[in-house]
Amino acid sequence: MPSPQLQVANCPCCGKVFQKNHRNQCIECSREIDAALNKCFDYLRRNHKSTEEQLTEATGVSAKYIQGWIKEGRLLITDYPNLNYPCCSCGAPIRKHKMCVDCSLRLNKEIQQLNEKEELRRYRGPLAAAESGFQIRERIGRLNRT
């Protein structure tokens, strides 16, 4: 009976070799990150209306970690009214979803325009294909003229 192979990887935080787990980091780094999260919770219990900058300054925890915990759902911004995270498109501060309202509207408008163009292209059929895009006949015709 073959023995199961041990799956190992390098910790993305410290580079140390560790046995793969669900957190994808070594035990020491996991403990440090958990301790930092607990430090943030302790501070937020005492200072409920703190901003991300105040939390970072008071605890020494990187804003990158705080934003990651918010996105993972480990730090609920519904409990803390002044915490937010950046829009994935423009970086504006938001409290829900992945994009701010402006970026969502812009993206929906662009998708609608693309759908309308595609529908028009389908409606016009082969004529639309001849009018848009590159045609081999055009290139061959230019080569024969020169």
Results as ranks from 00 to 15, higher is better:
111 I>S: 03
98 K>G: 06
109 K>M: 04
111 I>R: 02
122 R>D: 03
116 E>M: 07
101 V>P: 00
94 I>M: 01
91 G>A: 03
130 A>S: 02
130 A>R: 04
94 I>S: 00
129 A>C: 05
117 K>Y: 08
113 Q>K: 15
124 R>I: 14
97 H>D: 12
99 M>R: 14
126 P>S: 07
98 K>P: 02
113 Q>V: 11
101 V>K: 15
96 K>V: 00
128 A>Y: 13
117 K>W: 12
120 L>W: 08
111 I>Y: 10
127 L>D: 02
116 E>T: 06
127 L>R: 15
134 F>G: 01
93 P>G: 02
125 G>H: 00
113 Q>D: 14
128 A>S: 08
101 V>L: 10
99 M>V: 06
91 G>D: 04
124 R>N: 12
107 L>S: 12
115 N>E: 11
100 C>D: 02
98 K>Y: 02
96 K>L: 06
129 A>M: 01
91 G>M: 06
135 Q>M: 03
95 R>Y: 00
109 K>H: 13
135 Q>D: 00
102 D>T: 14
101 V>M: 07
101 V>G: 05
129 A>F: 01
102 D>H: 15
103 C>L: 06
98 K>H: 06
133 G>D: 00
114 L>A: 15
106 R>D: 09
119 E>Q: 08
102 D>A: 13
110 E>V: 07
123 Y>I: 07
108 N>I: 01
105 L>G: 07
112 Q>L: 13
106 R>E: 11
107 L>K: 15
128 A>V: 04
95 R>W: 01
117 K>C: 06
135 Q>R: 11
131 E>C: 06
123 Y>R: 13
111 I>F: 10
98 K>T: 07
120 L>A: 14
106 R>H: 13
115 N>A: 11
127 L>V: 11
106 R>S: 10
105 L>K: 14
100 C>V: 00
122 R>Y: 01
110 E>G: 03
117 K>S: 12
120 L>R: 15
135 Q>L: 04
94 I>R: 03
128 A>G: 00
109 K>F: 03
118 E>P: 00
109 K>S: 10
99 M>N: 08
132 S>Q: 11
112 Q>A: 14
98 K>M: 05
115 N>G: 08
92 A>R: 15
96 K>Y: 04
124 R>P: 02
97 H>Q: 13
122 R>F: 05
105 L>Y: 14
119 E>N: 13
115 N>T: 09
103 C>M: 07
92 A>F: 10
125 G>V: 02
124 R>A: 12
116 E>L: 08
116 E>I: 09
135 Q>Y: 02
123 Y>Q: 12
107 L>C: 08
91 G>I: 01
130 A>G: 03
93 P>E: 01
122 R>W: 05
111 I>V: 09
107 L>H: 14
132 S>V: 11
109 K>R: 14
131 E>S: 08
131 E>A: 10
104 S>V: 02
134 F>S: 01
95 R>K: 10
110 E>L: 12
98 K>E: 06
94 I>T: 00
134 F>V: 05
93 P>T: 00
100 C>R: 10
113 Q>F: 07
124 R>C: 11
130 A>F: 05
100 C>E: 03
129 A>I: 06
134 F>I: 05
128 A>R: 08
